[in-house]
């Protein structure tokens, strides 16, 4: 559905160069620090910024060449941009109805009510949780085949985040051919949702793995400095020394479970992976 081939974009002091692919029916996570390039990548996919070099394909075409009808299949939620602040939900409904053929007004109303969104207030008077929910519901309101969500849960408390993730899961269940690109710096949200994850840092992809492998095969190994010297590094991806021990990231924890039975081995979460990988790439 979406393919980026050596997409390059240059700004002052920042250079993006990424390649990625999102097949049909796939939920892909884009994770990275603030300023790493997530939003630039997403804006490139949407045709909001134009590449300096490289190819972008969405539904087989360059984003700027998509017809208005093809764009109906894309649902978007941007983190810092949405409907006019003086709009109420009624205004939003009128605009969505006039824009999207497959907009389902009753369903949208019901979902807004279910999420306790106020119908009589202007968006500028919404809480940040409400604004975020409105953006996500807007993206999902017209049966789009491709959802592009830029930091949909940023700045929200855990309950609001869970509400939004639940909405996204339900959306996927309704039609398994739908694809989602979701960017975030809250990796726990992505762990329970995405099929695969791209880690982006400083404008480059530093890791691309199936979530299943990240959670099932990756692991953290904690050893002393001496043990680290003699450790078989075949599957060690990164390591971090501190005063009392060395923490290693492995992509095959079963190997170390089998061969180093007495060693402390833990499941790795995406946050751990990020910290260890970025630490290495700093030195590297």
């Amino acid at each position: 559905m979406v393919r980026l081939n050596n997409l390059q974009k240059e700004y002052k002091g920042f250079k993006l160069n990424v390649s990625l692919e999102i097949p049909e029916g796939c939920v892909t996570g884009l994770i990275g620090r603030n300023g790493a390039g997530k939003t630039t990548t997403i804006k490139s996919i949407l045709g909001l910024v134009k590449p300096t070099a490289g190819e972008i394909e969405v539904f087989g075409k360059a984003p700027v060449e998509l017809t208005a009808k093809e764009k109906q299949q894309i649902g978007v939620a941007l983190s810092e941009s949405g409907f006019c602040m003086i709009f109420t939900i009624e205004d939003v409904i009128k605009v969505l109805k006039a824009s999207y053929e497959d907009f389902n007004e009753d369903e949208f109303r019901n979902k807004c009510t279910a999420q306790s969104l106020p119908f009589d207030k202007q968006i500028k008077d919404f809480s940040s949780g409400m604004k975020a929910k409105l953006r996500v519901l807007t993206a999902m309101s017209h049966k789009a085949k491709l959802l592009i969500l830029d930091e949909p849960t940023a700045g929200l408390d855990v309950i609001a985040r869970n509400d939004i993730l639940a909405l996204i899961r339900k959306y996927l269940e309704e039609d398994p051919t739908r694809s989602i690109i979701i960017s975030s710096h809250i990796s726990s949200d992505l762990e329970g949702l995405c099929d695969d994850i791209y880690m982006i840092n400083d404008g480059k992809i530093i890791l691309h793995e199936d979530t299943d492998r990240l959670l099932g095969n990756y692991g953290l190994i904690k050893v002393s400095s001496e043990e680290f010297e003699t450790l078989d590094k075949k599957y060690i991806v990164a390591s971090q020394k501190d005063r009392f021990s060395v923490t290693c990231l492995t992509s095959e924890k079963q190997f170390y479970i089998d061969n180093y039975p007495k060693t402390v081995i833990e499941n790795a979460h995406i946050d751990d992976i990020i910290v260890l990988m970025l630490d290495t790439s700093k030195e590297g």
Binding site: K170, L172, E173, P176, G192, D195, D196, T211, D212, L215
Partner: peptide, 19 residues
């Protein structure tokens, strides 16, 4: 249950369920 349904309920990746 369908792959997506189970993945959603268990809050895990659909690829894991498929595997």
């Amino acid at each position: 249950p369908s792959v997506r349904n189970l993945a959603g309920e268990l809050k895990i990746s659909a690829l894991t369920v498929k595997k």
